[in-house]
Computed example of a mutant assay.
Amino acid sequence: MPVPAEGTPRVVPRSRVLTWLHHQWVRHPRWSMALKGAVAASLAWLVGLVAPPPFAEYPYYAPLGAVVAVSSTAVRSVKDSAQAVGAVLLGAVLARVVGALAVPVVVEIAVVVAVALLFAGWRLFGEMGTWVVTSALFVLVLGGAEKVEYTVAFAGLLVVGAGIGVAVNLVVPPLPLTPSELALDRLRDVLADEVDVLAGRLETEGPLRAQEWQERRREVAPTIARARESVAAAREAARANVRARRYGG
């Protein structure tokens, strides 16, 4: 096999580069989520542009719905989208009710934010509760004299964008198996190290005291928690996921 001359740049085989890229891709699920989010948001924007009035006047709200749907698992994307739409509608209603009061704008904003924040903590909306505040402020401040038209466009485009995001997620559903495997491998290594340390301690100094046991547990607890979170995420992602059938074991 010929040896490259000194100073000649080293050529990395294409197969090794592709293997490395694939390894990084499956190891970091957020990369695929970012790509799907970009595709879904772009499609939602294009749909918003060609939509009939008044939707075409606010096309930028469609990508928001797409991002909400794509930034979760296939099953959760449907739930998150429904919660976000419900929160948006509630926020719009709050803005309409408060906007009808004959009070200064600063008072309207204060009342809307206070009430919306209370509803944002409603378990019905889950993590999408902040959309109540966002929607209320948008409708109140940006809606102007056409609050009804603005509300319809805002909520409608959000629904359309969320539908596109859900569709993209169902076509290419996330399945973060590699991160869960890495987390379990890390937990195995940590527990093996702990067993070795404990074995050495028993041979030299005898059993650990109660306080030492607690310290050992606290050191291992973060690794256990990360492993549980990764496994739970993988199990949730496997629901309604056609890709999961290939990994039935």
Rank of each mutant, 00 (worst) to 15 (best):
G163R: 06
T204L: 15
E205L: 12
E205Q: 12
G144Q: 10
Q211N: 12
D189K: 04
L208A: 09
L208W: 08
D189G: 00
G165W: 03
A153P: 03
G161H: 05
L175M: 13
A162L: 01
D189V: 04
P179H: 08
L177Y: 01
A145P: 04
T178L: 05
V168Q: 00
A210N: 08
V148C: 00
Y150A: 06
T204Q: 13
T204P: 02
V172L: 15
I164K: 03
V148M: 03
P179T: 05
L198T: 15
V195D: 11
E149N: 10
D189M: 00
P176H: 11
A183D: 12
A145W: 04
T204D: 13
P173T: 09
A192C: 00
L187T: 11
V171D: 04
R201P: 05
V148A: 14
R209W: 05
V172K: 06
A183L: 09
G144Y: 09
L158C: 06
E181S: 11
R209E: 13
V166Y: 02
R201M: 11
L170Y: 13
T204S: 15
R186E: 15
P207L: 02
V190Y: 11
A153C: 05
Q211R: 15
V197D: 09
L198D: 13
G156C: 10
R188H: 13
A153Y: 03
E149V: 14
E194G: 06
A210T: 15
L157N: 07
A162R: 01
D189Q: 07
D193L: 10
V152T: 13
A162Q: 02
V160C: 08
L170M: 11
G156H: 09
V171M: 08
A153G: 11
V159L: 15
L158Q: 09
L191F: 02
A183M: 09
R209H: 08
A145R: 14
G200M: 10
V190L: 14
V172Q: 09
L184F: 05
L157D: 04
L198G: 08
A162T: 05
F154N: 02
L208R: 10
T204G: 01
G206Q: 07
E205M: 06
L177H: 00
T204C: 03
A167I: 11
V148H: 09
A199N: 12
R186D: 15
V171S: 01
L182C: 00
G165P: 03
V148K: 00
A210W: 09
L158V: 12
